[in-house]
Design a protein around this nucleic acid. Structure first.
Lengths: 215, 215
DNA sequence: ATGTGTTCGTTAGAAGTTATAACTATCCGA
DNA sequence: TCGGATAGTTATAACTTCTAACGAACACAT
């Protein structure tokens, strides 16, 4: 991002082509899903022969990993700008939902069915931690008061994932429930499991969120 | 299932081969995921040439659809036998969880990322409805009493998906939350998003369930 | 018992895919 | 202006799904 001015022409061209490849990849993913992503098809769309693309991405996995990274970054950005505006968990929830509906396949690329054996590189899990930290921050502005649950006690002893965040176990639990509940509604909605049922998924989403926050 | 005695030898052989194909398919899915399922590889494993398999399944989609159908049936069976033993929602929840952990890819085949444009045939959605009905039955044995929520009012007017089940809106909502919450925890767990975080997903699952039932 | 038609499995092949190797052309910096 | 790095090409291998054409096996009726 910085240092663009000191790039050589070749470097500039290279990053530009890589970006264009990703754009075509996103288009293709949005319409046909990630499993049907074809490097060959992208190359043709860009007017070059298949193998030329391997100058820019070593293989299909590397491209997809880059897309996953970008997707995580995009989600983190959305949450960060909401957080910067002083958002509480309710606002963050609708930020997540809006981001997911904007491009369902992008959401599913992150939180959908993974290929067995795939392990995200460390920098991606770092973004994931950053997202978690934002949830914990938002939950800490109005921490819940309630009697300790068995899971609270468990979390007291297993809070490494919070990365030293000084949230109470109740807030830790709230962040986890926030994540799993919103994902529960969102992923079933995006996967089409509610189509034809008649009710409005947005209201179920709101109900689940409300139940969590007014606990 | 019935009429096995009146099957011709050819019919018997055919259903037997189809079953064997599915067994190999499940093996392959469990290790490499559904996206990497290869009809060719299955044929080789069975000692026959690739195209021979097309006598039994018209194409890859038809085989996968059959696997989805079997998975739904298996889940419905698990819930039905638990229900028959007089299970409440808590027991059903652990039945679902046990069933999912038994074969994660089988769960994800049903509830994971779908291929855009795929529509399940009617008999599969019928099984899905049957599962929903069992949740409503279980929730009706000890119906929740509580003030009506906005979502309750919405459900009052959009309850077609319940298929004429006489459950109160509160129970309808409970069944939906049951579904989405358990799926939220389970799918993230099965997708590996909790690995390395340290806490026990079973306890988060239990906490989410408890929160729903003691509401 | 002997046709006979259905069904099964084969090989051949088309049209894709990912990915590598080898070659050429282009570009950019020294 | 020259020369090495880089970009793109074609050819090829090894896959995939799936169709077509053929032969062989089998079950059933006469």
């Amino acid at each position: 991002m910085a240092e663009t001015g000191t790039q050589t022409p070749r470097e500039r061209y290279r990053t530009q082509v890589r970006a264009e490849i990703k754009e075509h990849a996103w288009e293709q993913i949005a319409t046909t899903g990630t499993s049907a992503l074809s490097l060959n098809a992208i190359a043709k769309q860009m007017g070059m022969s298949g193998p030329a693309l391997y100058r820019y991405y070593a293989n299909r996995d590397e491209l997809i990993t880059e897309l996953i990274r970008d997707a995580y970054r995009s989600l983190a950005d959305a949450l960060r700008s909401a957080s910067a505006a002083g958002a509480d968990l309710a606002v963050l929830a609708h930020a997540v939902r809006g981001w997911a509906l904007e491009d369902p396949q992008r959401y599913l690329l992150i939180y959908g069915t993974p290929v067995p054996g795939y392990h995200a590189p460390d920098d991606i899990t770092a973004i994931s931690s950053e997202i978690m930290a934002m949830l914990l921050d938002a939950g800490s502005t109005a921490p819940r008061e309630r009697p300790a649950t068995p899971f609270d006690i468990h979390l007291e002893r297993h809070r490494d994932w919070a990365g030293g965040h000084p949230a109470s176990p109740a807030v830790l639990q709230q962040a986890l429930s926030f994540w799993t509940r919103l994902h529960g509604v969102l992923s079933l909605e995006l996967a089409g499991h509610f189509t034809g049922m008649g009710f409005d998924p947005a209201l179920l989403f709101a109900a689940e969120l409300d139940d969590l926050l007014t606990r």
